[in-house]
């Protein structure tokens, strides 16, 4: 197996006069879980479509599992499993048939398809629904079935576009569990998400993109330390007060009606609380969401 699951060199995608992805380079190592983050319209879906061979690049080189997307589309789709943003299960077929019919597109022999279908239905815990129609399934069940379907061809890499959007917290936890399980089995995972907690919990590495460019990339912990220090003091409902920009070693920022102060230690932030009498203050460890907001929101909401 290739050491690099994805090798993108200066990839660019234009739609007419709009440049959706602008000479962007990154790599994903085999066996790692990699997150693609960014505001709506940042270029995440375009990158994913390019990797799935659904969108030819304007320029640049893109290799998936060592295979060039420009000429090995069929071989790439044989080794990749895709869970798109919108569920596209076949409403004319039941749960089991959805998997069996899909297996045929990969030319799996009947016995192999049957065996994998049973194993995957068990893996996503849909045994009791195996003969149910798709419209009888809950949102979480459909999502789990989508993941099962993407695993039919025993892929080396699973690509998930917003895997848990619109699902309740219990279902999200259950899906994260499955994805971690797959990751431990050695599967490379590429996912895009708007949930920072999802990215923080699932991804070994991630990159945040905006306007087709990479803003930052790295391990979630490192990104938080580098761009959101370690602690943050959040002050809400303080429109009338000025932002305190004079504290040494503290980064001050205004996001809408909130003031945010970032520092490596909580001690540096504690004195500020006293200055905001009557306002809602909250001292907490900083997280990926802070990084995201700082990098993608600057100039947009302040």
């Amino acid at each position: 197996m290739a050491r690099l699951a994805i090798e993108a060199g200066e990839i660019r995608k234009d739609y007419g006069t709009l440049t959706a992805v602008d000479r962007l380079s990154f790599t994903v190592e085999a066996g790692e879980a990699f997150g693609l983050l960014g505001p709506n319209g940042a270029g995440k879906s375009t990158i994913m479509r390019a990797i799935c061979c659904r969108s030819p690049l304007t320029s640049g080189s893109l290799k998936v599992m060592g295979l060039d997307v420009a000429c090995h589309q069929r071989s790439i789709r044989e080794v990749v499993g895709v869970v798109p943003q919108e569920n596209n299960l076949d409403p004319d077929l039941n749960v089991r048939e959805n998997l069996l019919v899909y297996a045929r597109y990969f030319r799996l022999p009947r016995e192999v398809a049957e065996e994998r279908t049973e194993r995957l239905i068990a893996f996503v815990e849909l045994e009791e629904k195996r003969n149910a129609r798709i419209d009888e399934l809950s949102g979480g069940m459909k999502r789990r079935l989508m993941i099962a379907r993407a695993l039919l061809n025993n892929p080396s890499m699973l690509i998930l576009d917003e895997p848990t959007t619109g699902l309740d917290p219990h279902v999200r936890l259950a899906i994260w569990d499955k994805l971690r399980n797959l990751r431990q089995q050695g599967l490379t995972i590429l996912l895009s998400t708007h949930y920072m907690d999802e990215a923080e919990k699932l991804c070994d590495r991630l990159m945040i993109i905006d306007h087709g460019h990479i803003l930052v990339s790295g391990r979630p912990r490192d990104l938080i330390e580098a761009h959101a220090k370690r602690f943050v003091l959040e002050v809400r409902g303080c429109q009338s007060q000025p932002l305190r920009t004079h504290e040494l070693g503290v980064i001050a920022e205004q996001h809408g009606a909130s003031h945010l102060y970032f520092a490596p230690t909580a001690e540096q932030l504690a004195p500020l609380i006293g200055e905001y009498e009557g306002c809602e203050t909250w001292l907490r460890p900083s997280n990926l969401e802070d990084v995201f907001m700082r990098l993608t929101d600057r100039g947009r909401l302040t």
């Binding site: 799935c52 659904r54 589309q73 069929r74 789709r77 044989e78 895709v82 798109p84 919108e86 596209n88 299960l89 076949d90 409403p91 004319d92 899909y102 597109y105 990969f106 030319r107 379907r149 993407a150 061809n153």
Partner: peptide, 14 residues
């Protein structure tokens, strides 16, 4: 409406 083509085009089928 059913995105069946999208699903199929994620497989080796051209």
């Amino acid at each position: 409406y059913q995105s069946t083509y999208d699903a199929i085009l994620a497989t080796p089928v051209e």
